[in-house]
């Protein structure tokens, strides 16, 4: 091998190593979520998904020098469509429509407050872990606040399930997806247990009957 060719090859190897080891690893959550199998609440629910939620992403540089970006925003609309389609008789995504004109009984306003994640290198385990902290507001048909509550969802994924040449991104993606599914499951379990929501549901269903 002549010297210029050898040097070029060496530089290419260095650049490749740098790109794979130190570049930004991007992870986005798949956009398919199952419709929950629950008894539907006989109400029409709207959901307001603002721009901040739909473009939400978390970027963090770890001590190892590697930067991670977890993109959650694009998954939020399919997530809440599936969730509310399963939970309520009718659901509508309010796209700029004023609440009073939307012909809904209530409006859910979700927001992501924070995301944290950990890698196996940090925790000395085999798991990637993701925590997502949501905050929900429930508004009545006039836009008045009925209830507000936080929800922390958790997802983990065993790195050993994604061995070989797949890299770490699929394992973190699986943990983020698990956290999104956990958010849906927790929302379903929690929704009926919030006192202000219980009162509101009883009043709405009483008004209908």
């Amino acid at each position: 091998m002549t010297e210029p060719v050898w040097r070029t090859t060496a530089w290419l190897v260095v650049v490749c190593l740098w790109l794979t080891g130190c570049g930004t690893a991007r992870v986005s959550v798949p956009q398919q979520f199952p419709v929950p199998l629950v008894e539907r609440i006989p109400l029409a629910m709207g959901v307001e998904l603002n721009e901040a939620l739909k473009t939400w992403a978390h970027t963090e540089k770890l001590e190892s020098g590697r930067e991670w970006q977890i993109e959650l925003g694009s998954a939020q609309e399919p997530l809440f469509r599936s969730l509310l389609t399963g939970m309520f008789d009718r659901m509508t995504v309010l796209e700029g429509t004023p609440i009073g004109d939307a012909a809904v009984d209530g409006v859910l306003v979700p927001a992501i407050e924070e995301l944290q994640f950990s890698t196996p290198d940090q925790t000395r385990t085999e798991y990637f872990e993701v925590w997502i902290r949501y905050r929900f507001q429930l508004l009545d048909r006039n836009g008045t606040l009925v209830a507000e509550w936080p929800l922390t969802a958790y997802g983990q994924s065993n790195a050993r399930n994604f061995g070989g040449m797949q890299g770490q991104e699929p394992a973190l993606q699986a943990a983020a997806l698990a956290a999104c599914r956990d958010a849906m499951a927790f929302f379903i379990v929690q929704f009926h247990q919030i006192p202000a929501v219980q009162t509101w549901l009883t009043a709405q269903q009483g008004a209908r009957s």
């Binding site: 929950p36 698990a178 956990d182 499951a185």
Partner: peptide, 8 residues
């Protein structure tokens, strides 16, 4: 879903 998720 969601009755066989880790939480439930």
């Amino acid at each position: 879903f969601p009755w066989f998720e880790p939480r439930t």
